[in-house]
Design a protein around this nucleic acid. Structure first.
Lengths: 339, 339
DNA sequence: AGCATTATAGAAAACGTTTACAATAAAATT
DNA sequence: AATTTTATTGTAAACGTTTTCTATAATGCT
């Protein structure tokens, strides 16, 4: 059976209170007794039950983290940034996957809530869940930080990369090279995609003359069937639709497009330019190297972790926002439009 | 303040016991009262405190997962496999990073223990921690599954890819192409590397005639400084040492070597062949595509999750082992030895 | 109608902690 | 020497649950 504080107390001939005081070191206790107790703790190899402690104290030291999945290296990088900070402050990380699903995301939230997390970090929140007001009460009572997925809702706290600005940079660089018909490649229902799409629309609208929108929905995830097929479908129509470039919501999609180009025999960047988003490690290892927009993923996570602990400490939920820069990373998939 | 079972009981005019019975659905309760209680639960938006429940029941539904880091896509894939199964059985996943450090790993274990996990899954366990007997008592009292890092210690349970066989396949394929001087590229202190090194040594020993060992230690992680530098150093000596190939402990290292070759101007696979291990997505996206040994990472995680839940259920810790196949994945970095 | 049985619900102890309060002993003050 | 102060410890209630045991009301049986 598990050793408890009572066992220690008995063996050391003191009260449980004293043992508690020794392990928490928050009340004076005679150095001799302290030594005695510590000795017994060592002997019995006693490890305090954090759960019981947390029930008593009515607050936990674990943070729930919700990400869609882990297939896109973007998320592991973010998680890494989160963990680094949490660990340092001796918080734990409870990980859940929302699988790009509205319901799954809600399930995750409820689960974390019942596990009494001190707060949660939600990356790439589902659009519908925000719009429907699912989070509205929640953000009042529980510290939540959203990573990427700005919304102007009351009381939401964010850490985000300036995706709109990033999108603009991508679009502008495409435009400067003479591209006028540009695909916008996105996935399902995530705020992050919506923001970029809005930026895309606005960007086109602001240009002189008539410019056509070309919005393409591809699947999620990782070199999976769906994304491959859709990309191929898209690339096959490049010539007939007269498009010469694509701006993709993330690097994975961009690489999907790139591979499709290879398969179909469209040469990148001579015939077709591609810009991704995120700057995951993969992006500089593919051939040709992917031109992309960097968002500092580690920092995104790290800041989110900082922010959530801050919020927890402050007790009063005041909404905050941290914005990181998106920077253009020139590489090899962007070229002047030919012809 | 948080709604508790007492609040519900009061408002519904029943005892807490009844409420408990309603939410657990494990004892008969009149359908009318049940309805009434459920209504109140909805109204108050009551979420049971899992922690308190778990303290009472003296068992939790969370599994601790320890991985070195998340930089190598190998681990996210494993985690994915784990999560998929856990989620399905409504277990949660507490994630810790051991950072390839002996002490950190111990810290992780202790932390998980005090968080009362029902069991833990340790990927890429540290060699010293096994040898020193750190885990010996632990595996007796707590269900633990080790992923990759077979040891013949009493009471250890494993899910592993047959790394020795995988290594042999790699080495044999190199040998068959005429390579005789083969680098073995490995990282720090992990059982997984040790197993492969042993396989390497044994393989060479078994060949006729005199064959030299060339063991190279590179850093850990992800296109980081250390690994890059070490790889470059290694590649620069290729000619003088007369080596024509490298077998690397994981794909990340293999890609490090590949990049070094590009930089130094050694052509792969014409001048130099490379074989990796893992078959992470990256490996088929680099140019030339990496020849490697596939281990089914998702399955590794998934099986580990299955096994740990099984072990937990059984109560009596009987040690188990699941071995998955390692398969050779021919791609573009392996060629006949020239000259 | 009276008794035995069953269905339902409440009281209270327990899980492993923390902590406010009270109690004691020792030390310091007068 | 008597009194106050301080240092140290113990007692017991609390945290939010579950669950055994008991009590009651309702039902079935003769």
């Amino acid at each position: 059976m598990k050793i408890t504080i009572v066992d220690v107390a008995k063996k050391a001939n003191v009260s449980v209170a004293t043992v508690s005081r020794v392990i928490n070191d928050n009340y004076p206790v005679n150095s001799k007794t302290k030594a005695k107790v510590q000795k017994v703790i060592k002997e019995l190899n006693f490890i305090p039950n954090l759960q019981a402690r947390e029930v008593k104290k009515r607050k936990t030291k674990t943070i729930g983290v919700i990400v869609p999945s882990v297939e896109n290296m973007f998320f592991p990088e973010v998680i890494n940034g989160i963990e680094q900070h949490l660990m340092q402050k001796s918080y734990s990380l409870l990980l859940s996957f929302s699988k790009n699903s509205e319901e799954k995301e809600q399930e995750c939230v409820r689960n974390l809530l019942s596990r009494n997390v001190a707060g949660m970090i939600v990356a790439d929140v589902n659009t519908t869940n925000v719009e429907s007001g699912f989070y509205d009460d929640l953000v009042q009572s529980t510290p939540i930080i959203f990573i990427n997925g700005e919304s102007s809702r009351e009381g939401f706290s964010h850490v985000l990369c300036d995706e709109r600005d990033g999108a603009n940079k991508a679009l502008q660089s495409l435009w400067d090279k003479g591209h006028r018909d540009i695909y916008f490649v996105r996935g399902g229902s995530s705020y992050s995609y919506d923001v970029k799409e809005q930026a895309y629309r606005d960007f086109l609208r602001l240009q002189d003359g008539e410019v056509n929108e070309h919005i393409v929905y591809v699947g999620e995830g990782n070199s999976n069937q769906v994304i491959d097929v859709t990309c191929k479908l898209m690339v096959e129509k490049i010539r007939q639709e007269g498009c010469s470039a694509a701006f993709c919501c993330n690097d994975l999609m961009a690489i999907g497009v790139l591979n499709a180009c290879k398969e179909v025999g469209v040469s990148v960047p001579d015939e077709f330019s591609i810009i991704g988003f995120d700057n995951i490690i993969l992006s500089k290892l593919v051939e040709p190297k992917l031109t992309t927009i960097d968002q500092n993923m580690y920092e995104l996570g790290n800041q989110a972790a900082k922010l959530i602990l801050e919020t927890i400490k402050e007790e009063q939920s005041i909404s905050k926002k941290v914005v990181l820069n998106a920077t253009f990373v020139p590489r090899e998939t962007l070229a002047e439009k030919k012809g």
